[in-house]
Every structure is written in C-alpha cells, then in structure tokens.
Amino acid sequence: MHPLLMLLTVLAMLAVSAAGGWVLTAGVLHLAGRSSDAGSPEDEAAAHDDEAPRATALSDGPDGDRARAVLRGGTWIGLLERVAVTGCLLAGESSGIAIVVAVKGLGRYPELRENPGASERFVIGTLTSMIWAALVGLAGRALLMS
C-alpha cells in the first residue's frame, strides 16, 4: 500500500473511532439512563424520608446530572481513549490498551468510589467506547494489512 494511502487510512480510522464512538456512547448512556434499574430523583427523595441511613450512596443513574458533574471532562477523555485504543491496534501494539485502561481507571478512582451514578456512567461509557474503538482499530488494521 502506498504510504500516502496508509496515512489517509490511519487518519480516517482515528476520526471514525473518535466521532462514531462519541455518538454511540452517548446513545448507550441515554438508553442506560432510561432503564428500569437506573436511579431517579424520586428514589432519592423517598430515601431521605427514611430514618435509617442507606448502606450505599444514592444514584441518579448513569445519565443523571450528578454523574455528569462528577465525571466532568468525560467527553474529551473518551475521545482521547478511543484515539489511543484505535491507534494502538493500528500500530500492532495492543498491549498499549492496558496503559489506557490503567490511566483512566486510576485517574477516576476517587470520584468513582463516592458516586454510584458516576461508576455506572464510567463502566458503561468505557466499555462502549473501547468496544467501538477496538472494532474500528481491527477493521483499520485489516485494511492496512491487505
């Protein structure tokens, strides 16, 4: 494959990974927020009426305002995560994905520990984002190798 065509393929795959993953992840998070097991503000109000403290903190779900506020910057982190994962796969260095996961998890640990909604959002968003980035990276790698 001509070097210019290779470069264009890599750039196209990185763009598809970043942009397509943003749309997909936002959609999955929206669906998760609508599921019957997602927290709601009504649940929180009812819990405050009880005298006994709850064992776990309340959640407004993975698409709630509190989860979004706790995980500020998540859109940009997700974009960078997808570019890094896809780039690792395009370069044939899949072990680099472990570094991406480790940095992201360690960087978010304090927020995740204290907020169940943020934890849900983090896990759902990360899995959706990484699956998309891996699929795009593997497809791009196949194109580059043909």
Rank of each mutant, 00 (worst) to 15 (best):
98 A>F: 13
125 G>E: 03
59 S>A: 11
77 I>G: 12
98 A>L: 15
79 L>T: 06
89 L>Y: 00
76 W>V: 10
65 D>G: 07
131 I>Y: 05
111 E>G: 11
113 R>L: 06
50 D>V: 14
130 M>C: 13
55 A>L: 15
113 R>P: 01
135 L>T: 11
89 L>C: 03
122 F>P: 05
50 D>F: 11
85 V>Y: 02
82 R>W: 01
85 V>D: 00
54 R>S: 15
128 T>D: 03
119 S>Q: 13
49 D>E: 15
120 E>M: 11
130 M>V: 15
100 V>I: 13
61 G>L: 04
65 D>I: 09
135 L>G: 13
74 G>E: 01
112 L>W: 07
63 D>H: 11
100 V>D: 01
81 E>C: 07
67 A>G: 09
118 A>R: 03
53 P>D: 10
116 P>A: 06
96 G>E: 04
120 E>D: 14
130 M>F: 12
123 V>F: 15
95 S>P: 00
102 A>V: 13
127 L>C: 15
79 L>Q: 00
118 A>C: 07
70 V>P: 00
57 A>W: 09
131 I>E: 07
102 A>W: 03
114 E>M: 08
97 I>C: 08
70 V>C: 01
77 I>V: 15
102 A>H: 06
54 R>V: 10
72 R>K: 14
109 Y>D: 03
97 I>Y: 07
86 T>E: 06
118 A>Y: 02
126 T>Y: 01
118 A>V: 02
89 L>P: 01
88 C>N: 07
54 R>E: 14
58 L>V: 09
98 A>I: 13
114 E>G: 10
132 W>C: 08
70 V>M: 06
69 A>P: 03
119 S>D: 07
113 R>M: 07
116 P>W: 06
120 E>F: 05
54 R>M: 10
93 E>G: 00
114 E>S: 10
62 P>H: 01
71 L>N: 02
62 P>D: 02
98 A>H: 09
120 E>A: 14
67 A>W: 05
120 E>W: 05
61 G>M: 06
107 G>M: 09
95 S>E: 14
126 T>E: 02
74 G>Y: 00
90 L>C: 03
100 V>W: 02
85 V>E: 00
131 I>P: 00
90 L>K: 04
60 D>V: 02
56 T>A: 14
78 G>R: 00
123 V>L: 15
94 S>P: 11
130 M>I: 12
125 G>S: 10
70 V>Y: 00
119 S>K: 13
104 K>R: 13
54 R>A: 14
94 S>V: 15
107 G>W: 05
133 A>P: 09
132 W>Y: 12
75 T>Q: 09
135 L>R: 05
81 E>F: 08
109 Y>I: 10
64 G>C: 03
77 I>E: 02
81 E>A: 10
56 T>Y: 14
83 V>M: 12
70 V>D: 00
86 T>Q: 02
50 D>C: 11
69 A>L: 12
97 I>H: 07
77 I>D: 00
63 D>T: 04
97 I>F: 11
55 A>F: 14
55 A>M: 13
54 R>Q: 14
92 G>R: 03
99 I>C: 10
80 L>K: 02
75 T>W: 05
82 R>D: 02
134 A>G: 11
109 Y>G: 05
68 R>K: 14
80 L>A: 12
98 A>D: 09
81 E>T: 13
77 I>Q: 03
99 I>P: 04
76 W>E: 04
82 R>Q: 08
101 V>T: 10
125 G>R: 00
